[in-house]
Computed example of a mutant assay.
Amino acid sequence: MHRLSRYILAAVLVLATAPAAFAGQVVDRVVADVNGEIVTLFELNQRVKPYLERYKGRQLTEADKASIMKLKHKLLDGMVNNILIRQEVQRLGINISDVEVDNEMESYKTRANLNGTSFEKQLTLEGMTVDEFKQKLRDDILRHKLLGYMVKRKVAVTDEDIQRYYDEHSYQFRGDRTVDLSLIVCAEGVDVDNLRDRIAKKEISFADAADLYSQGPGMGQGGRIGEMSWGDLAPEWQSALDGLGKDEMSQPFFIQGHEALLYVNQVESEGTQPIEEVHDAIYDAIYQQRLEERFAEYMSKLKENALIDIKL
């Protein structure tokens, strides 16, 4: 089985123009200054526009406006983070070539089983150009280089950590364990916590919610993405599914920057794998979690030491 969960989604930041609903507002001004590098309202609206399609053609309520403003602040924070990362890699002399970006794009197409034509069609469906996709890849590569340069050396996983994880998550290591899953990948404008609460209260089924609100695979099929081997799931998926059984739903988690929910349709397993067989997988899971924690701490310190003026 392929590692489907790793390649189901490509991280998407789409550029578009501001919606007609906001035509009467100021077209452009500075909304953030990050160590002298600015973000304009026009640039922010380019990022926001794809998530506002569901409001098109209707009068915005106060709740809608509050939700849109919350979305803008969240996306602006991500733009500020990207600027800080770019400034930091410049300070450290970390470079990335066009060849690296092109190679990563070709690797992505190979992993996702996309040729030139199908790749461009997929980008069109996601409202993205090749140049925009390359810029996203460039930002991702820079982030990973910064992780390697400043963060990875601070992450350690001991044998005691691995044993503790194995004891606390032994159900994950039952031989030939498979899970049948459904998935919701929310647009930024969708309140994932509210949506999960509605599903939990049975106000709407997971399948109907997926068809209405998901932008991920399984759209039109109730979000069902099928049966997967536990070992083929990415660490963040395993973490989200930790402790869940049949007909249970995960807490919200992030997939390539998008908030998501998983639903377990079925679980099948046999036996229990010895720790020796799953040692490396456990190491990777713990390492990835701690890596993200260290990176979050690193970004927090960058913000503390930066001159950031938010004017939104």
Rank of each mutant, 00 (worst) to 15 (best):
H2Y: 06
R3I: 03
L4W: 08
R6P: 05
R6A: 09
A11H: 10
A16G: 12
T17N: 13
A18C: 07
A20M: 05
F22M: 07
A23F: 13
G24A: 06
V26M: 05
D28P: 09
V30Q: 11
V34N: 05
G36S: 11
V39Q: 06
E43M: 09
E43A: 15
L44T: 04
L44V: 08
Q46V: 01
R47T: 02
R47Q: 11
R54A: 07
Y55E: 00
K56M: 00
K56N: 06
L60M: 02
T61N: 01
A63L: 05
A63M: 01
D64N: 07
K65H: 01
K65V: 06
K65R: 12
I68E: 01
L71W: 03
L75P: 08
D77L: 03
G78N: 07
L84P: 08
E88Y: 00
E88H: 06
V89M: 02
Q90A: 07
G93I: 04
G93T: 04
N95D: 07
S97Q: 01
D98R: 00
D102K: 06
M105C: 03
S107W: 10
S107K: 09
S107C: 03
K109R: 12
K109Q: 11
T110N: 07
N113A: 12
N113F: 02
N115G: 09
T117Y: 10
E120V: 12
M128R: 08
F133G: 00
D140Q: 02
L142C: 09
V151W: 00
R153Y: 02
R153F: 00
R153W: 01
V155W: 08
V155Y: 04
A156L: 11
V157S: 05
Y166R: 03
E168T: 08
E168F: 04
E168K: 13
S170K: 06
S170D: 12
Y171M: 13
Y171N: 14
Y171W: 00
Q172F: 15
Q172H: 11
Q172G: 15
G175S: 14
G175P: 03
R177K: 14
T178C: 07
V179L: 14
V179T: 09
V179W: 01
D180L: 07
D180Q: 12
L183Y: 05
I184V: 10
G189W: 04
V192R: 12
D197L: 10
I199S: 13
A200I: 13
K201T: 13
K202T: 15
E203K: 14
I204G: 14
F206I: 10
D208Y: 00
A210P: 05
A210F: 06
Y213Q: 12
Y213P: 12
S214V: 04
S214I: 05
G216Y: 12
G216I: 13
G222K: 04
R224Q: 14
I225T: 07
I225V: 15
W230K: 07
W230A: 12
W230R: 11
G231Q: 11
D232A: 15
D232I: 04
E236I: 14
W237T: 09
A240D: 10
A240G: 11
G243D: 09
L244D: 11
K246P: 04
Q251L: 15
F253A: 10
F254G: 02
E270M: 09
G271P: 01
T272W: 03
T272M: 05
P274Q: 08
E276A: 13
D280G: 02
I282R: 04
Y287Q: 08
E292F: 01
R294L: 12
M299S: 00
K301A: 15
K303I: 03
E304C: 06
I310F: 15
K311C: 09
